[in-house]
Design a protein around this nucleic acid. Structure first.
Lengths: 383, 383
DNA sequence: TTCTGGCACTCATCGGTGCAGAGTGCCAGC
DNA sequence: GCTGGCACTCTGCACCGATGAGTGCCAGAA
């Protein structure tokens, strides 16, 4: 039913659009709506400016109060310039179109997933962090001593800024390059393979060799491996070292191939795709109907696989917002996920994001997520 | 108010005590009670056998049903051989002594922290895992490929077995020995220091050198470092390599001392004291008065420091149970922590444990914790 | 055509009331 | 020292009616 979640380009949310200040980035074309999309206040219910303003007001109020918002309260708190009755008519239209809904007859309205979607796509601007906030972020992240620490600080920071659950993926190996490969002989047939990446990550593997290994062979292999693979991107490495075994004496080849295959294994993402999370305590602010909502979420958070998928779907380079049922995982049906890639230099090596109730402060969250991603990228690039 | 939590020796809970089957291990002397402690059914309320049986029954029932248990239900479900009226009298005594309490007048009784304490110390036996369970544990842990994986599997296993929150501390470095130290020249003044421990853990540090480093110096240092530190315990290492700088040419000494001091740093526990946890979703089974109880717990779980302290207090080699307010951290006032050390070989290198509601199945939990600790130890010793 | 004020209607919420049931404490008797 | 009986207490639940927020609709004004 819902269309693809939209990923807004990185420049969005700032540039206030050339002409009239209204619909900023055209992230998602207003298509998918049956009626003519172009002309503003057209037929039946192509939403005119005021209806959009009403929707925006509803979202804002509901996010703030957590209570269904009624027509009277709306006109009191926002100067819409019309009477409650008019607003009611607009609300009826919005409800008919599926943007808002009533928990029960004669209660106020709350936004639907579709309503939030529209809000995020067309009505909200990413709220930039204030200068003091930026300084704080910068300062907090600057203290990190190693990669683990960077990730740990990032995730805590993000959880604190957004007051929600934060998730940070460790920089993936696929985009990384090899800084150094080290081979250590632990026992006659046991080698420790240590792989150091340009992002400062270190991977180790134990290699069980088919036969005893001479130190000289190992030294030889070490030198050649580094000569060929050093500085290369992970995916390229296998092809580059493929022919290494043949340059060794036949007796040594089994060892060499064993080492290489272990190396390849550790180049593959798989268990590298680690994730760190923080802020689960913020889940308690979720709502009143608590245990029902929170349990599946906690379960989802325990499943690294689910989290990875969640982040993984984030489009490269842009911010992604998945709202409610747009999430494939059922347990997260009443949560939204805001995620974005981050990286050292110009390309994204991993994702980070925030998980919160669908009823969340999207502009603020998006701003925090974007800012943090940016700074982490800088930190990584520096180190 | 409460005395020290008791750590039962490892042999406990199996040996059914020589004579009459009743009070097994004398873990904690029955002192601390004002009245004469020795003679069994003496004055006023030194608890006789039956009162203890009643307390045991109350704990068991309450743990099962989560509801205050009344006298009638008690005699129906346990054959105590007396009438409800008698049980009521015993209950009155138990309440007077602070072992049980009434949520409100004319409700059943529930155990107090003190009651659980007595139960754990004198009334319960650690429930050994069944052979199939043991096999399952064994099998599950055997699949682990590296240390991270061992810890990850352990914590998940423990959470699953106990259906509570499991916590596993990474094997600490203090008790570890150095398997190998590797030095890699990344840039003229940048060295990557990699430390491999006997528990399979790898630590890396970036060393910024005051001046350019020659590869030959580095090789020299590498060889000498490993000769002296290899196989030694961490705390002993500094003394053993202290005089290394003097054996180098004066020009190289700054580099050598820099490397050494970085090495010493990473030998110190500090950020090595990592912890992994799992099973937070099990918190949802905590109780009805949910959000109030769960939030501080989630907060505590986010604080590595708190968790470390919690486990750290576990007595070496024995199992420790902290019940309710015995925990120093306020947020965990209504939870209990069962923890135990584990290690490769005969000594404990780290702790693991379980956090759950005070109303938990102590015998079962203790059995699971002990069994898992034992098997992890074996796995570590093998690798 | 669009907005507005008014009016009847619908429910959720909340305090009060009454009943049933579980559990206790106490007492007299075995 | 144990037991059966009895009166008492208190929670939980269902029911009731009043209250009030909020809606939908309609006729009239701009």
């Amino acid at each position: 039913m819902f269309d693809e979640p939209v990923s807004d380009a990185d420049n969005a949310g700032r540039a206030a659009a050339p002409g009239a200040g209204g619909t900023p980035r055209a992230a998602r074309p207003p298509a998918a709506r049956p009626a003519r999309p172009a002309t503003p206040r057209a037929t039946g219910h192509s939403l005119d400016e005021r209806k959009l303003a009403v929707l925006r007001a509803i979202v804002q109020d509901y996010v703030g109060t957590e209570e269904p918002v009624g027509s009277k309260a709306l006109v009191e708190r926002h100067n819409l310039g019309v009477s409650p009755a008019t607003v009611r008519n607009d609300m009826a239209t919005l409800e008919e179109d599926g943007y808002i809904q009533q928990p029960h007859t004669s209660a106020g309205r709350i936004p639907t997933d579709k309503g939030y979607r529209l809000f995020v796509d067309r009505l909200a601007e990413v709220k930039p962090m204030s200068p003091p906030e930026r300084r704080a972020i910068r300062h907090f992240l600057d203290g990190a001593v190693d990669l683990d620490d960077v990730v740990a600080r990032t995730v805590r920071l993000l959880a604190q800024l957004t007051r929600q659950v934060a998730v940070v993926q460790y920089p993936s190996l696929t985009r990384s390059t090899v800084r150094h490969v080290e081979l250590v002989l632990l026992a006659p047939t046991k080698i420790m393979l240590v792989l150091i990446t340009n992002t400062g990550r270190v991977e180790q593997r134990l290699v069980d060799c088919p036969s005893a290994v001479r130190e000289s062979t190992l030294a030889d292999l070490r030198v050649r491996l580094n000569a060929r693979a050093g500085g290369r991107r992970f995916p390229d490495v296998p092809a580059l070292v493929e022919d290494l075994p043949s340059s060794f004496e036949p007796a040594d080849r089994p060892v060499v191939t064993t080492v290489l295959s272990t190396l390849f294994e550790s180049l593959v993402e798989q268990n590298e795709e680690r994730i760190m999370l923080a802020g689960t305590a913020n889940l308690t602010r979720f709502g009143h109907d608590f245990p029902l909502t929170i349990q599946p979420v906690l379960e989802a958070l325990e499943e690294q696989v689910v989290l990875l998928r969640l982040l993984g779907e984030a489009a490269d380079g842009g911010m992604t917002v998945r709202i409610g049922r747009e999430n494939e995982y059922e347990g997260l049906n009443s949560t939204s996920v805001v995620s974005v890639g981050y990286g050292s230099g110009d390309e994204s090596v991993a994702k980070l994001g925030v998980i919160g109730p669908t009823r969340m402060d999207y502009p603020g969250t998006m701003g925090a997520v974007r800012a943090v991603a940016r700074y982490v990228g800088q930190i990584l690039a520096e180190s």
